[in-house]
Structures are given as structure tokens and as C-alpha cells.
Design a protein around this nucleic acid. Structure first.
Lengths: 206, 206
DNA sequence: ACAAAAATCGACACGGTGTAGACTTTGGGG
DNA sequence: CCCCAAAGTCTACACCGTGTCGATTTTTGT
């Protein structure tokens, strides 16, 4: 479809099409516009103008505003996946929780805008919904692992690790979603509260 | 602005303007359309057609699609407020939690569609954001009260009732949001899990 | 340096929005 | 009963954002 779907890295020469630059520029422009106009108000013409091309040219790269935003979300989410694999590997559950929450604060501080956008569009843009759902599953699996290591019985019943992890994941998502709209201080506060509830839920009181 | 802003209930005679009927019919149509097309796909023309009038006539009642949906949300949310005042009045915290969750299941089963819509549009339609924020605050206050009665220290610190209640509220909102999209069984499951975590957070283990 | 591929542009058709003005219905007083 | 103002409704229009098309220019590999 759009150029850049295949990396097309020629073995040696940096096959860096001019269009690859433009594509990144479009995504950057989109992120900037998203920041100060919001998704609804942002128009395809706005993005093109920000990049310095016409709408027609932009449609060469992406088929619609939704596709642009989807690509932006994909770029960000890919970044999350890379950096989050090694998290919560600690043996000590208490430390694992702390590490995970530190990581979460980082992610939302850096990418809060795009993550909020992804959540907002999950319903209306199936592709984004899929992307975010995948991401949430990673978090849920990580939380489940920590709960089980802390002694919570495995299983999908209401009082068992998997279901609890899902609920805790939504708690964290929503808390950070709101907090990251306000200030870094709010994010810190949300983080502390979520960490506390997570610890209690894992039976790690005191 | 639009008719019906003032109840205009003449003291005796039922001053039931023909327009009041239409207004309700529009809201009903909107709710129906919302159910099987979704907000984005639903057009002002669709709503008008469903009611059996033209777009022009609809604009006599509401200034835009957003206004229609806002009115629909307002109608539903008003309903929530009425019925939720007497909840969680029980002395026994454990019973209060159970009652609150039963209530929540009811609300989401009956009004899940509109509630999800309200949440989705909170960002883009400030008026709806305000409405939903108010509603969330009611829930948070109720949860706070239960936590305090169960012995959680009052205050806004991360380990104190108010902050914890907020996090728990988001957990419940998000869990039900997702579950109510799937099935009643999922809603029940979510309810049980949330209840369990709430109880643990309140220190009511065992 | 030249041809194919990549990129860009301007113009168009389409669909949804919101508004304006003319027309019809409704429902109290004279 | 009639009349008139208010309430309600309609058709037509202007606007704006979208997505597409064909013509044109630039890049790129050889």
C-alpha cells in the first residue's frame, strides 16, 4: 500500500527514499497538530500545510486522516513494546511492582498524548483498537506474572490472578489517562496510588 | 434556546406542547441509531429520517448532532443521579460494597450504550465531559465514604481514602466499559473482580 | 543523460453541515 | 367562528472537508 511498509533496506546502501523522510515528517506534523488542536479539529489540509505540501501530495502517502494517526500510534506503540520487554523481571515482587510503575510513569510522560489519542480512537478506528488491545494484553500478562509470583492463585476466576490483573490494568490506564492530561505532579500521585492498590491486591501489605 | 429548557409546567393543565413529544422522539431515535451505527456513522439526516421529519425540522429542536447526543446523555445521567442517591447507605461496609456493585451492574446493563458514548465523547464535547465528570465525582464520594467507614484513613495522600477511591472508580468505569461491550456474563465477571479488589483495598479481607 | 518510478500539484465531485426564508399547522382570544 | 401569532415544518442554498484523477515535475538507478 503505502511506501515504507517494507523496510526495503538494500543490504548496504542506505536506500533512504525521499518519501521516507516525508512520511516521518507527516507523522511528526500530525503529532504536533494533535497536541494543540486535537483530533477532531485537525484537518488533512492542516497536516499537509504543516509539512509544506498540498493535500494531494499527502494522499500519496496515506489514504486518510485515520491512516495517518494509525501510523503514528503504530510508531509509538512499537516503541513501547521494545522498551517494555525487560520490565518487571525482578525476583522480588515488591521491587517488580515499583519498577513497573516507574516505567509506566516514563511512558506516559513521554508519550501521553499519543497514548490518550489511541485510547480515544480505539472504538472508531478498528486498526487502532487492535493495536491498543495488544498493548494492554502485554501489560495484563506482566501484572498477572507479578501477582502469581506474590502468591495470588493462578486462574481466571474473580479472585484469581488473571482477572485481577485485567482490572488493575484498566485502573492504571484510566488513572494515567486522566492524570497525564493535567500535570506531571498528578501523574506521580496517580502512580503512587496505583502502586499501593496493586501491592495490597497482591497481598504485600506492610 | 431549544424548547423544553424550562419545564414550563403550567400549574394544572398538562402544557404538553407537541414539540415535547418530538423532542423525546428525537432522543429515542438517536439512542436507537447510536446502538446500530455508532456515533461517527450516525448523521443528522439519519436521525431526522428515523423520526419521520426532515433535517430542517430537527434543527428547530437541536443545533447540532452534538447537542442531540448531549441532551440524550443528560437525560440518562439525570436518571442515574436520582436512583443512586440512596445507594451504599448500609452500615456494614461489606454489605455497602455489595449493594453498590449490584447497583452498578444494573446501571450498566440498562444504560451501557449511553454511558459508553458519554465516556467516548467526554474529550471532544466539553458539555458531556462536564456531565460525566460530575457523575464520576458522585461515585468517588460514595466509594470514599465506604472506605473511611471501613477504617481507611481519610485524606488525599496516595494511601488514603480519597485517592484510592478515585483509582477504584476508574477501575470500575473501565472494567464495565469493556465488559458491557461484550455480554452480560462479562459484566457479572467484571463486577465480581472489582468487588473483590475494592474489599481488599478497604482492608476487608477474608 | 535518459527512461522509469516516485512525488507533487490543481481541479473536481461528493456528502454532510448549518442557515434562511417561505409555508403550514396549532391553539387561544376577540 | 375567525383570526393571528407562535410553533412547527419544508425546500433550497452556501460552505467546508474529503478523497480521487490525470497531468506534470522531480528523483533515482543505470
Amino acid at each position: 500500500m503505502t511506501p515504507g511498509n517494507q523496510p526495503a533496506r538494500g543490504r548496504r546502501g542506505t536506500t533512504e527514499r525521499k518519501g521516507d523522510l516525508r512520511e516521518r515528517a507527516i507523522l511528526d506534523a500530525c503529532e504536533a497538530l494533535l497536541a494543540d488542536k486535537g483530533y477532531e479539529a485537525m484537518t488533512v489540509g492542516d497536516i499537509a500545510q504543516q509539512v509544506g505540501i498540498t493535500r494531494g501530495a499527502l494522499y500519496f502517502y496515506f489514504g486518510s486522516k485515520q491512516e495517518v494517526v494509525t501510523a503514528l500510534v503504530a510508531r509509538t506503540v512499537e516503541h513501547l513494546w521494545e522498551r517494555s520487554l525487560a520490565t518487571a523481571q525482578s525476583e522480588e515482587p515488591r521491587e517488580a511492582v515499583a519498577a513497573a510503575m516507574r516505567r509506566t510513569v516514563e511512558l506516559w510522560s513521554e508519550h501521553g498524548l499519543v497514548m490518550r489519542t489511541a485510547i480515544d480512537l480505539s472504538l472508531t478506528v478498528p486498526e487502532i483498537g487492535e493495536l491498543w488491545s495488544r498493548t494492554a494484553d502485554l501489560f495484563i500478562m506482566a501484572i498477572t506474572a507479578v501477582l502469581e509470583r506474590a502468591g495470588v492463585p493462578a486462574g481466571t476466576g474473580p479472585q484469581q490472578a488473571s482477572a485481577m490483573a485485567r482490572a488493575l490494568c484498566w485502573m492504571i490506564e484510566r488513572s494515567f489517562y486522566h492524570a497525564s492530561q493535567e500535570s506531571n505532579a498528578q501523574v506521580q500521585q496517580a502512580s503512587s496510588t496505583c502502586e499501593h492498590i496493586w501491592l495490597i491486591s497482591a497481598g504485600l501489605t506492610g
